[in-house]
């Protein structure tokens, strides 16, 4: 089966006033259909850059990004994005945010409304549709952002530390919601985090990025199921230790 997403020898340089700054070098990464990959890396290691390259928002300065074997020409609804900061358009209500993609695609008003209602219910916020983001809690905003990305029925969800600024309990709930959505809709997920436990809880695989300029240090499969016994198993502990030491912790 062809990879939903493949980065082949990808490098990226930012242009700054003092010349090019290398953010990523020689990154190889594949994402199979319906696979959940967590990308771990230290702050400033190029995780967000990698995600933007995968989304087609930035063009690699070396190598290439493929989706199903074809080069990615630019961003598109088939690759949905969920970010940590400024996740929602503040000038649109929760409903308006979710309807954004369908509206641009040209679907009719009742159709959009139904779609938004359904998705807001799916993320557990049916009663918040007419609130502006400023009147939502951080966790609620991330739920709406997930619903907005899902409205395009993406094949791939690209998520950049979406739960990083949530409290522990809310984060736990959001992780469960994401797993439920993933189980039901089966998109591929590329999930950026700097939290090892989050990566080991969610991912089929973890990929660990080095400090700047980012290289993939290693990728490892994470055994399932994720029950309490598995979490305490020696293999899991060894993997956690390996990830932590790679992050320099």
């Amino acid at each position: 089966m062809s990879a939903a997403l493949e980065l082949r020898g990808v490098g990226f340089n930012y242009l700054s006033r003092r010349g090019p700054v290398s953010a990523l070098v020689g990154v190889d990464l594949t994402l199979a259909p319906s696979e959940f990959v967590c990308l771990l890396g230290p702050s400033g290691g190029g995780k967000s850059t990698l995600l933007a390259l995968a989304a087609g928002l930035l063009a690699p300065t070396a190598g290439q990004v493929f989706a199903h074997g074809r080069p990615v020409p630019g961003p598109g609804v088939e690759r949905g994005l969920v970010l940590q900061k400024h996740a929602l358009f503040p000038w649109r209500t929760a409903r308006g945010n979710v309807e954004f993609g369908p509206r641009l695609k040209g679907s009719s008003a009742p159709e959009r409304r139904r779609c938004a209602e359904e998705l807001l219910a799916a993320v557990g916020l049916p009663e918040c549709a007419d609130r502006y983001p400023s009147a939502l809690s951080e966790g609620q905003r991330q739920r709406v952002a997930l619903a907005r990305a899902l409205a395009g029925e993406p094949e791939i969800l690209l998520m950049d530390e979406p739960f990083a600024s949530l409290d522990a309990l809310t984060r736990r709930q959001m992780q469960e919601l994401l797993v439920a959505v993933w189980t039901q809709r089966r998109p591929s997920v590329l999930f950026v985090t700097h939290d090892v436990d989050e990566a080991l809880t969610l991912g089929d695989r973890v990929a660990v990025l080095s400090a700047c300029p980012g290289r993939i240090l290693f990728t490892r499969g994470v055994p399932r199921p994720r029950d309490a016994a598995a979490r305490l198993a020696p293999e899991t502990a060894a993997l956690r230790a390996e990830c932590l030491s790679a992050l320099g912790a």
């Binding site: 933007a52 989304a55 928002l57 630019g74 961003p75 598109g76 609804v77 690759r79 949905g80 994005l81 970010l83 900061k85 400024h86 996740a87 358009f89 000038w91 954004f100 993609g101 641009l104 695609k105 907005r148 990305a149 395009g152 690209l158």
Partner: peptide, 25 residues
Amino acid sequence: EREYVWAARTLGADGLRLWWEVYVP
């Protein structure tokens, strides 16, 4: 914010549409 532009572009906005849907509001 770059995030708004990114989100709008992945949702299918570009060119004048991006301008009208993000930069103006």
